[in-house]
């Protein structure tokens, strides 16, 4: 199956980001294709390299970046990002900023779009 994942909440504050990550890992292990991951609302905070969590905690932004390094298309909504001060300069590698058209294409092209949020 071709999957797309939409994340609507910021990191640490809400479990959505962790649920989405664990779901994607399980999908990859089963050999499913991830068509894309899209961050919207406060979800755009998931991929800022300015975050510096305690050493013994998971580093949420780096985790997403590692998925991006595997070739998964990770997109941050430009409108939601600008509103919240997230710009290209603060993003972790392997993640890009683009428009809601990307989410539209994911919703159309993926067999399943799964949303994680509050």
């Amino acid at each position: 199956m071709k999957l797309a994942v939409l994340v609507l909440e910021g990191p640490y504050n809400h479990e959505a980001s962790d649920s989405a990550y664990n779901f994607i890992q399980a999908a990859l292990e089963k050999g499913h294709e991830i068509r894309g991951i899209f961050f919207y609302h406060d979800g755009v905070y998931n991929v800022t390299k300015l975050m510096e969590p305690p050493q013994d905690d998971r580093h949420i932004a780096n985790r997403w970046s590692e998925l991006g390094a595997k070739g998964i298309d990770i997109v941050v909504c430009i409108a939601a990002a600008k509103r919240r001060g997230i710009v290209d300069d603060v993003l972790v590698p392997n993640v890009r900023i683009s428009g809601l058209g990307q989410l539209t294409m994911m919703a159309i092209e993926a067999d399943r779009l799964v949303t994680f949020g509050d």
Binding site: M1, L3, F23, A26, A27, E29, K30, R112, L113, V114
Partner: peptide, 13 residues
Amino acid sequence: YAGFVDLVDQNKV
């Protein structure tokens, strides 16, 4: 989570 993925595979969500 693997079971969650299977449920998504089998159903619209």
